[in-house]
């Protein structure tokens, strides 16, 4: 395995300082960081342990990030559009929280607010499969985390 990057070591140091609290003398922090780096590097060389830590990391990041995404689709109205999109979401255990749609003449717009906390695949894969599902109906599909809308439209 390649060495840990400076960013990763800094992350470890920051966590060490936080956990040590008042005991965080430079010597103590250095000791903890050294031990941790050593442990991580040893684990990285052992294939069994490596798999375990990787899964843990994924679960950890998922819990921390905002789990709601907004799926917007545009195109000509036709049968099965909604089923196509929601079917893909259901297949990957995504939970639809809210849904609204608008049909202006022939033009169809659909918006889905989706919780992906239980999603079985990662964000990029989900994005690709939704775009793929949209293609069958000539739909343009845009997938974004919900936060960006809150940031732009709420003071």
């Amino acid at each position: 395995m390649s060495e840990l990057s400076e960013q990763e070591i800094r992350r470890i140091a920051e966590q060490a300082i936080e956990q040590l609290g008042e005991d965080a003398s430079p010597q103590a922090v250095e000791k903890v960081v050294k031990e941790t780096v050593h442990r991580i590097e040893r684990q990285a060389n052992d294939p069994n342990i490596k798999r375990e830590t990787e899964t843990k990391n994924v679960a950890h990041t998922k819990k921390q990030s905002n789990n709601r995404i907004i799926v917007t689709a545009f195109g000509k109205n036709q049968k099965g559009i909604l089923a196509g999109l929601t079917g893909t979401l259901a297949k990957h255990s995504c939970d639809i929280i809210d849904l609204s749609q608008k049909i202006l003449q022939e033009f169809f717009t659909i918006m889905l607010l989706v919780d992906i906390a239980q999603c079985t695949i990662d964000f990029e894969e989900l994005k690709d499969s939704l775009i793929e599902a949209g293609k069958k109906f000539d739909l343009k599909v845009v997938i974004q985390h919900e936060e960006i809308f809150n940031i732009m439209h709420r003071v």
Binding site: T72, M111, L113, I148, F149, N150, M152, H153, R154
Partner: peptide, 13 residues
């Protein structure tokens, strides 16, 4: 307040 469809469409536009 939930995000309105119009606001989402504006962002995408």
């Amino acid at each position: 307040m939930p995000i309105a469809l119009e606001e989402i469409l504006e962002t995408i536009r």
